[in-house]
Simulated assay, not measured.
Amino acid sequence: MAPQHPTAALLLCELVMEIFSWVPAKPLTRLKLVCKSWNSIISHPHFVKLHLYRSPKNAILLFTRTEALTLDEGAKWGLVLSSVESFIQNPSSALDAQENRHSLHIADWVSGSCNGLVCVAHSPYHPNNDICDIWLRLWNPLIGFISENSPCLRVNLPIAFGFGYDESSDSYKVVTVIRDSSGTVTAQVYSFGGSSWKTINSFPAFPFSVENNGHFIGGTLNWLGLRNPHRDDYDWATVTLDMLMIVSFDLKSDTHKQILLPKGIHEIPREEPILGVWGNSLYLLHDYKNTHLIAWQMKEFGDENSWTQFLKISFQHLGVERLLSVFIFENGNIFMLRGRHHFEEVFYDRRDNSVKRINILANNSYLDALEYVESLVQPR
C-alpha cells in the first residue's frame, strides 16, 4: 500500500477531530483506547478545549451529600453525578445509582466545580478549633485526574471559598475569604500549579453563609455578604439593607467590586437571602414578609439595571415554611427547595405552577447541588 500523503493525513486528522468534538466526554474516554492516533487526538490540549466549548452546558448536576457516621468520625462526603433529565424524572433513582457515585475522604469537602473539575478541600482535625490547615486539589471524576495539593493555608475560622477559571492565563484559581478575630476581612488567592498564596487585603464584605461557595460566572466569583461585620454571631434582626452587598471578584485582575442589589428591594428580608447562578445568569432569592419567595434575575451579568423580578410565589403553595436552600436549573424554570422536613426536597416548575415533593435522602444525610459539565480537562 502506498504511503498516505501528508496533506491527506492532516485532513483525516482534522475530520476525526471535528467528529469527536461533538461526542460526549464519557464515550471519548473509551475511544482513546482504540488506537494511538485517536488517543493522541483526544488527549491534545486544543481538542480538549474545543470539546469543552461544544459540550452541552447545564446538562449534568453534581450533588454533594453527607453519609453520617459515628459521632467520633463525623460525616463523610460523597459526590453524585446525574443528568438533569434523569434527576427531574426520578430524583431518588438518579441519586442512588452506584455508577454515579464517588466517595471522598473523611476530611474532604467540595469547594466548587468548573469545566468538569471539582475543587476538593482537605482539612484534618486540628486541636485548636478556631484554626484549621487546608490543602486543596483538583479532581476530574470522569478521567480520574487528581492534581498536586496546593500549599498549606492556615486560617482562622470561619472561612468561605470560591473556585473558577481565569481564561486570560488559562489557569484555575481558588479564593478563600477569611475574617479574623478583629473583624478584618481578607482573601487568599491560589492559582493551581503555583507555589504560594496571594493575599488580597481590605476585602469589603464577608459571606454570611459560609456553606455557600462563591458563584462562578463571567470570569468572576460572587458572594452575598455583610459589609464589614465585626463578629461571627451577628443578629440578623439588626442587619440593615445598606449592610448587604454582592462582592464580585475578578479572577483575571485579582480585584473586586460591588454589585448593587435589585432596586425593587426596599426592606431587609426576614430571612437571609440566597445568591445563585444558572447558566449565564446571576440570581437573588429572598423571602417577602415570611409569606412569599421572590426571585430576581440579572439578565446581563454586570449590568445592575438588568435585574428583573421574575417570580413571586407563596410558601404555602410551595409547601415550605421558610427559605432554607434553593437550587435553580432548567433556565430558571425549576426550583429545588428544602421542604418542611429536613430530608424532603420540593420541586417547583414555574412553567405550569406545579409542585412535587420527594423524600430523597435518609439516614441523616444532607444534599447540596452544583452545576457540572463532563470534560476531559486535565490542567498541566
Rank of each mutant, 00 (worst) to 15 (best):
A187N: 06
N228R: 15
F216Y: 15
I200W: 01
G214W: 03
S196K: 13
R231E: 09
W197C: 03
I200H: 12
L221H: 00
T184V: 07
P204D: 01
P207W: 04
L226D: 10
I178T: 12
G219C: 03
N228Q: 13
V175F: 01
P204Q: 03
G193C: 14
V175W: 00
G214I: 01
R227N: 09
F216G: 07
S181C: 11
G183R: 06
L221W: 01
H230D: 13
V175E: 04
V177W: 04
N213H: 13
V177T: 08
V210D: 11
S209Q: 09
N213K: 08
L224S: 12
N212T: 14
T220W: 01
F208K: 07
Y190R: 10
I178F: 00
P204A: 14
I200N: 09
F192T: 06
F203K: 06
V210N: 11
G219M: 03
V177A: 00
G218A: 13
A187Y: 03
F206P: 08
N212D: 15
D180W: 05
P207I: 00
S195F: 09
V210K: 04
G214L: 09
A187H: 02
F208E: 04
S181V: 13
N222A: 04
G183W: 06
F192Q: 07
T199Q: 11
V177Q: 00
I217K: 15
Y190K: 06
I178Y: 04
P229R: 08
K198V: 10
S181E: 15
A205H: 07
G214V: 00
G214H: 00
A205G: 07
R179H: 10
V174T: 14
S202N: 14
Y172D: 07
L224C: 11
L226P: 14
S202V: 07
R227Y: 06
P229W: 04
G219A: 05
I217F: 11
G225D: 06
H215E: 15
P207R: 07
L224N: 12
P207Q: 12
R227M: 14
R227C: 14
T220G: 13
N228G: 09
V175A: 08
S195P: 06
T220C: 15
K198G: 03
G214D: 08
F206G: 02
F208Y: 15
G194Q: 05
N228L: 10
T176A: 05
H215Y: 09
A187F: 02
S191C: 01
T220I: 02
Q188L: 04
I178W: 02
D180R: 08
W223T: 00
N201S: 14
N213I: 03
K198T: 12
N212R: 15
N222T: 06
F206K: 08
N228I: 04
S196N: 11
F208W: 07
D180T: 02
T186F: 06
S181D: 12
H230T: 12
G219L: 10
D233R: 14
V210L: 01
L224V: 02
G218T: 13
W223Y: 12
Y172P: 06
R227P: 04
Q188G: 02
I200K: 09
V189W: 05
P229F: 12
